[in-house]
Design a protein around this nucleic acid. Structure first.
Lengths: 208, 208
DNA sequence: GAGAATATAAACAAGATACTCACATTTCGT
DNA sequence: ACGAAATGTGAGTATCTTGTTTATATTCTC
């Protein structure tokens, strides 16, 4: 008995080697994201995903050991997407207004394909043993970017942590709400969200 | 054929007459809210609710014709709760800072009992025929309060609608996120949320 | 104490769904 | 070209969930 636990279900039952199997796996993940976003976790069934992907249910289970492994894959892909959007906006030093504009643009872009996926992933879909770590790591890195931005644009350094959290959750709330109403593309909304960010960050002493 | 449609399932199959039946109905709604908040729509079953209420499943169906009628009852109760919280904060004219403080306090109070109920009700739980109207009416009145506040504290009158929406969804986002982390009571959070509201509303010309 | 109101929980019918398996088809190395 | 490996198929299954009914028991009201 050297191994800790039975086997927490591997990520992939079989690694795709040929080009078409790679495409299949990709189609499954993509369809899974669509189903999850449009129907929510309650209606997320493997059969439904397979059908949405235009693939037989057998093919799905050829690569994903079980339902949760599939959700994990979807989660990983989406989180990577969101992270790079933020990273891009917070990369180099730039004026606050520009940072805000790019952040808004990036977040909207990251949510316009599957508008409610993010919330579903965060709230409804269960975090199993395998993804708990990834989940936490994502949250940490996610917040880290916001924290860096806050530190850069704000004089008062107290409560940086809280400010970052408040800012990120406010932005997410606005995006999420807009997504529900199909208003993600409305220019007034983008402008106002930018205003919100600027106003809050420059509230008690901006830097640039 | 004078009636519009068959019968969209009445709110209550039987009206409670005695004191204990009133208590039973109340216990069921309360337990329903708890289950909905803690487990989400995916795990919301009538049997589970009955058990959580300490009541037999038969009693539940004595008063609620079906599952959706129960959700509707929960929704109505919660929406009333939230609405009065906002109404209270936006009632009389008062300085911006005070308005913000009271709004935050009220929203937090309205969410501290069943932290994630609001989001579940809005996102996951289906809005059937009976509740669509109530739902829309709630949203309208909800936003109306915000709009009034925005008009009161902001000079620029353009985009009032959008500003109200952005503000409300930002506040909800922060509350929701804090609820998930059990941070609703953290004083820094309350303070920062207040700052956010003030900063945004006074961003382009405050009035008080 | 009679009858109405209320509570109980076993049982059911219907459906959903995660997952397997035996077999068909395609690709690739040689 | 050919055989083995990779990939795709989808009907089938076994299990579980769950909304709802119903016959029966208990409690209240007058």
């Amino acid at each position: 008995m050297s191994t800790r636990i039975a086997k927490p279900a591997p990520r992939m039952r079989k690694e795709p080697r040929q080009a078409r199997s790679v495409a299949t796996v990709e189609a499954i993940i993509e369809a899974g994201a669509r189903v999850l976003s449009e129907i929510g976790w309650a209606g997320f069934s493997t059969n439904k995903v397979a059908e949405a992907a235009g693939v037989s249910i057998g093919s799905l289970y050829q690569y994903f050991p079980d339902k949760l492994a599939l959700v994990d894959a979807i989660r990983r892909r989406h989180f990577d997407h969101v992270l790079s959007a933020i990273r891009e906006a917070a990369a180099e030093e730039k004026p606050l207004r520009q940072f805000a504009r790019e952040l808004v643009r990036g977040m909207i872009a990251a949510h316009s394909i599957h508008p409610t996926l993010h919330q579903v992933l965060l709230d409804e879909a269960p975090g199993d043993r395998g993804s708990r770590a990834a989940h936490a790591s994502f949250q940490a890195r996610y917040l880290e970017h916001y924290r860096a931005a806050v530190a850069q644009y704000r004089r008062r350094l107290k409560d940086t942590e809280t400010v970052a959290r408040v800012l990120s959750s406010a932005v997410e709330g606005v995006i999420h709400n807009a997504a529900r109403r199909n208003m993600l593309d409305a220019p007034e909304l983008q402008k106002q969200l930018g205003e919100l960010i600027c106003a809050y960050l420059s509230g008690q002493g901006a830097r640039a």
